[in-house]
């Protein structure tokens, strides 16, 4: 199954559509390090360049590191 990172505040209808497209959803949790509006925005915490991912250690430890494909 393919995996997709989403904002933890995404609405159910949108999540259901992504699941119907056979994606496993991984939610970015709210952070206190930013202002509320962007506190779980995917593009604030994760940057993908070709097949390499960049993220703060806190997000790697709690989110990305739990994804089988990204374990190292």
């Amino acid at each position: 199954m393919k995996t997709i990172l989403i904002d933890g505040r995404m609405r159910e209808r949108e999540k259901e559509m992504l699941q119907k497209m056979e994606y496993h959803l991984v939610e970015i949790p709210k952070s206190t390090q930013t202002y509320a509006e962007i506190s779980s925005h995917v593009d604030i915490f994760v940057c993908k360049i070709n097949n390499t991912f960049f993220s703060p250690k806190s997000i790697f430890d709690t989110v990305l590191g739990q994804i089988e494909l990204l374990k190292r």
């Binding site: 393919k2 609405r11 994606y23 991984v26 925005h41 995917v42 593009d43 993908k48 991912f53 494909l69």
Partner: peptide
């Protein structure tokens, strides 16, 4: 029917 929301996009693994 849903308002359009900015989630900071998504990232496909």
């Amino acid at each position: 029917g849903l308002d359009v929301v900015d989630y900071g996009g998504i990232v496909v693994i």
